[in-house]
Write a protein that binds this DNA or RNA. Structure first.
Lengths: 236, 236
DNA sequence: TTTTAAACATGAAATATTTAATGTTTTATG
DNA sequence: CATAAAACATTAAATATTTCATGTTTAAAA
């Protein structure tokens, strides 16, 4: 029963692309949008699954319709680094679109995700024929770039507590849109995002809990004193 | 005498834009290029001068014709962070172009520079009317984005020596195009790039000199054993 | 439902990094 | 050219961070 509904959804792309269609409609014709839809595939990824793999060819651009995704970079010694975390709805791989190199990093589902894979070649054709649409797309990509840069700046010259504070504040403001949220990241993943050890994240969160800056109940994390958290972020 | 030549150069924009003109000519008409030239201003910046200031409005896009520039982020407590360093010829501010927010960081001349400031509005008009040109510009901006990201990745999960090794290798490969070069950065600036203390940079460079991995003679730095340096980069 | 693996947690030892104190050399400036 | 300021350099002490060892709890798999 449930799978039937799902299948229907998959087979009826007209139902999808809602956010993307709305913002695109100002820039491209229905005909061009249909062209994108026809060559797109909708897929569902479970938590932990890889949507797009580091090193692979950028044959598709990802439209994230539902769910949360991490941008994961894995180095030669299999250490992971999370570049950023984003929630739907969003166009991912904006940067990937414009250079033809292999993907710099993987997209991995942090929550169950619904994504639409858009054929990169077809999208490029549409972009070339609709320069204002292209400009909009690049602006979206730039916004994401900007947020990554802010993350990196935090990482680069704050220490542990400032960086973890920045991440909690970022998750609340940009990913979960609430000061209280179901944290889908493990401590290890937060550490990979903050560029520190897992133990450090555990210790810092515990400490903040006793100081009543946050509360942690199972997977629910709530910011109790946002001013203190912002202060920690500021003093680094 | 010398200043006269310089002034001539400034007043004859046709002589400038050489690299940019060459790559642009495949995508836009001479007429459109002239439009860009007419609204552009050529300026000369001395070492240390700010070309474009963090927080300012992105009214211009910078074409760096000659020289070396650092992307500098200054935080509330006046600590600097160098995001990347680039050498001419290059279009800077690609990302700035596409979001209308205030500049995220400053461009500061690390060597004497010749730059052409292109009016952002006029450039946008030309981009909208020449989508292939726009795509090319995106690609250029994305390349720079990619290099920053690689820098940040190094910063995020390597320690001191690996990061400094990465910077020396980057400078040789991407900025000076030689394993031996006149280093225009101070130890303090390398530290701001590597995200560590000045003392650390001094100590590491001294150590590498005694180990014959590099040689430092005044401002001339030469990589003597690139394999060892790459190995340090690899093991982090 | 047992079993296993992963996540969460804590503290101590080992290591890395910064800060501070001090001095020399180089570069910029009156 | 004298003088000040900045850059370069070295060391020890203080601090931050990671690693390791160990144990409990939670979630996933057989």
């Amino acid at each position: 029963m449930h799978s039937k509904i799902q299948a229907m959804t998959i087979n009826d792309p007209k139902q999808e692309f809602s956010w993307f269609r709305r913002i695109s409609s100002q820039f491209i014709s229905d005909k061009d949008f249909d062209k994108l839809e026809k060559t797109s595939v909708k897929l569902i990824f479970k938590k932990g699954e890889t949507i797009l793999k580091q090193g692979g060819l950028p044959t598709h651009v990802v439209y994230l319709e539902k769910g949360i995704v991490k941008f994961n970079y894995e180095n030669e010694s299999s250490k992971n680094l999370i570049l950023t975390i984003v929630s739907a709805p969003k166009i991912l791989g904006g940067a990937n679109l414009f250079y033809k190199d292999n993907n710099l990093f993987s997209f991995i589902a942090v929550e169950d995700c619904e994504v639409i894979l858009i054929d990169a070649k077809v999208l490029e054709e549409v972009l070339v024929e609709n320069s204002r649409f292209a400009m909009m797309m690049f602006q979206v990509a730039s916004e994401m770039f900007k947020k990554s840069v802010m993350n990196f700046i935090s990482l680069a010259h704050k220490q542990k507590e400032g960086r973890i504070a920045d991440i909690i504040l970022y998750l609340a403001a940009e990913v979960y849109n609430d000061t209280s949220f179901h944290l889908s990241l493990t401590r290890k993943e937060i550490a990979e995002f903050a560029g520190c050890s897992t133990e450090n994240v555990i210790m810092t969160l515990s400490k903040w809990q006793t100081e009543k800056i946050i509360s942690v109940d199972g997977k629910i994390l709530a910011i109790k004193d946002i001013d203190k958290l912002k202060h920690i972020s500021k003093i680094g």
